[in-house]
């Protein structure tokens, strides 16, 4: 136990870096995912094709491969970011397709009759979209999106592969140095459990909050 307290500073630093990746990953993937979902439901065929291609490619190439390609491959083309931002960008690129598919499935749950009713009542298309479709679609999507982001919390660990000093990376370093790696891993596992639990709780709270519009 004492060992863990001695390294509390290291763990804290690792958790902060991981949290940073989670926040950037969340913001980036929710924006990119929404754009992809909008493109995928658009009446313009080219837009649908672009979105489908993106989803197919970036969902099916494993995150470690994307990360390594981004960090070690792209500098050959003189495209170079800092380690941390490349990891964040790869995380966003990989998570966005899952977000897009989730949001799209939410749009599909809204009954078409409701839209017809709103048109019969004289709502303009955009107004009924804003007041009727989107609130319902987003409300059904909160819970599955929460699951996507719990997975993303775990996926931030892949950044350790390219040397970003986040929780998993620091854990590995400490475990190599210390005589009792078991405890170090236990501490790190607890950190991830708490992070995942926190994201899950946030999602559940948000879900309760939007439950009325479902």
């Amino acid at each position: 136990m004492e060992l863990l307290f001695n390294h509390a500073g290291d763990f804290g630093q690792g958790v902060l870096v991981t949290l940073g990746l989670v926040v950037y990953g969340f913001l980036g993937s929710i924006i990119l995912g929404t754009i992809l979902a909008a493109l995928k439901t658009s009446p313009i065929r080219v837009a649908r094709a672009v979105s489908s291609c993106y989803i197919l490619v970036f969902r099916n190439i494993p995150l470690p491969v994307q990360m390594v390609l981004f960090v070690f491959g792209l500098p050959q083309l003189d495209i170079q970011f800092s380690l941390y931002s490349s990891a964040a960008i790869a995380l966003v690129l990989y998570t966005a397709p899952f977000v897009a598919e989730t949001i799209r499935s939410g749009l599909n749950t809204v009954d078409r009759g409701e839209l017809e009713a709103s048109m019969a009542l004289g709502f303009a298309p955009m107004t009924s979209m804003r007041l009727l479709v989107l609130p319902q679609a987003l409300a059904t999507v909160v819970r599955p999106l929460g699951n996507v982001y719990i997975t993303m919390v775990k996926n931030t660990s892949v950044a350790a592969l390219v040397g970003v000093a986040e929780l998993t990376f620091l854990t590995d370093k400490l475990a190599v140095d210390e005589a009792s790696p078991f405890l170090i891993f236990a501490g790190s596992a607890i950190c991830y459990l708490v992070l995942g639990l926190a994201v899950g709780r946030l999602g559940a709270a948000l879900d309760r909050k939007v439950a009325f519009s479902r």
Binding site: K154, S157, D172, A175, P181, S188, L197
Partner: peptide
């Protein structure tokens, strides 16, 4: 517990411990 721990951490765990 095990479904919320990253795979990479488990991989480090198995290879070191």
């Amino acid at each position: 517990v095990f479904s919320s721990i990253p795979l990479l951490l488990l991989l480090y765990f198995t290879s070191l411990v």
